[in-house]
Design a protein around this nucleic acid. Structure first.
Lengths: 268, 268
DNA sequence: TCGGTTACTTTGTCCGACAAGCATACAATC
DNA sequence: GATTGTATGCTTGTCGGACAAAGTAACCGA
């Protein structure tokens, strides 16, 4: 009920429970607390390793192990000269982490599609009222490049991913932008496959993108949402027309098309 | 366009670019590759640190730094005896990571609410067709406890978070389940506040929860979605009635109510 | 067979060391 | 005076070795 951050229950005796966690974790947590509380603003330099050794009174190896954890979680970064400073976790880093987890959990295409069906229309609708001119310009540029990319499935799939990412940006909602990013990443191989094997797919995709864009530019919420819904439905129909199974884990698709050169895991 | 996994561009000359990344990163990446490719199944033991030292031909300190990174990203874990084995990144770990990032990026209540408005109704609708009996039982139990918890705002807020998490579980869609988890975490303080300061809030909340549950049990997709939408709207109305600003970063709310005991960051 | 003791293994932590990269200050050159 | 080259020191990355604590496995006696 009142679990501590490390998952243990608070002791109810006279003395507090002894902290058994290894020192490197406590180092990482101490620095993390400083950042989360705002006492270390993003961009502020953490000291050198030697500084931290002095402050925490532990060995440099221990400090370094703690630093690795924070570095991995994106809370600290290094500049050109390798020096450490506090930082905001980047969305793209989080997104790739999330998609990795989804692949490992063998999430199915259906699950991915349903989530997309919830998020993308809302994203387009919000874009109608929040899109800033420079994002609209970026979308226009994306559309222009897409029209020229018909015939290049790989590039087209990339531009498709970018289009939806831009709509997410245009929504002016970073939660939605972050939530939908992993979906885009995981759909890209499928998008590639579609562009490659379904002749009408590129044209249909570009038309849908154009309609969504026009609606957003016109501020037509209903139209933007409707076209996005149609677009996402269309994507699923194309997928099914390829004879693929909706319940198939995305992993298979992902590996078949992204790392097609590496041999399969040899049964195990 | 064709960026490598480390963000660099591939060299186009005769010689490949020299890999400047430190050894601990390469160690981490090597192990990560084994896990992602399936050659190391979740649960499979990684060797001991000494084993890895032999395999990679680097010092133990270097191996340990690499291990810290993987440990942090959830790809490896340790059992009771501290031994390492491959593992699936836990949803809850990812979720708390995401909410931390959202707080640091000073996401507003509006952004959070809009994303919730996209995901939660879909979650409830999917639950109508996918909910398994044991999850339905869990929801029933949650409702029962909620009815007894009127008068205990903290507990009620906790049960509220749990209810929505259970609906996510019932949706049978792990992408949605994962996407909505951070939202629940960040809303909990607000939920607490509402239960505390708006007299009718607990009753309204419990009624909405009950209606959603009944609809799901009856398999009534439209009803479940509609009541969930109403519930989420209601939440926002309550928030506004408190005189709170929709554009206020959630950070403030979060800190004001979760760590109310720690003094504010003293202006900086 | 059971329980206990012993020896080994593994992790967490420490110490000391050194090479390579970068920064700063300073000297040499145009 | 601006630019280029150099010396010096600081910082990180990597290494080797060491030891205590805790767990594991083996062994041994009853």
């Amino acid at each position: 009920m009142a679990a501590l951050s490390d998952g243990t229950e608070p002791a109810d005796g006279l003395f507090g429970r002894i902290d058994h966690r290894p020192a490197y974790q406590r180092v990482a947590e101490a620095i993390e607390r400083e950042i989360m509380s705002g006492r270390l603003a993003p961009g502020a330099p953490i000291g050198t390793e030697a500084d931290l050794v002095r402050q925490f009174g532990v060995n440099r190896s221990t400090v370094r192990e703690g630093i690795r954890m924070l570095e991995q979680s994106g809370l600290i970064q290094r500049d050109g000269s390798r020096r450490l400073f506090a930082s905001l976790p980047r969305y793209t880093k989080l997104a790739s982490r999330i998609s990795r987890a989804l692949v490992l959990h063998q999430v199915t295409f259906r699950e991915l599609w349903e989530a997309t069906m919830a998020i993308e229309p809302m994203s387009a609708e919000l874009a109608c009222t929040h899109a800033r001119p420079e994002v609209l310009d970026a979308i226009a540029g994306n559309l222009e490049r897409s029209r020229r990319a018909v015939g290049d499935p790989a590039l087209l799939a990339e531009l498709d991913t970018e289009f939806h990412a831009l709509i997410g940006r245009a929504s002016g909602n970073r939660v939605i932008e972050l939530s939908r990013e992993p979906l885009g990443l995981l759909f890209q191989p499928t998008s590639h496959m579609l562009a490659e094997e379904v002749p009408v797919a590129p044209a249909r995709m570009i038309e849908a993108h154009t309609r969504v864009f026009e609606a957003i530019r016109a501020g037509d919420v209903a139209e933007a949402g409707a076209w996005m819904r149609r677009h996402v439905h269309d994507f699923r129909r194309g997928f099914e027309r390829l004879g693929k199974d909706l319940e198939q884990p995305v992993e298979r698709l992902f590996h078949d098309h992204v790392s097609a050169r590496t041999p399969p895991p040899a049964g195990r």
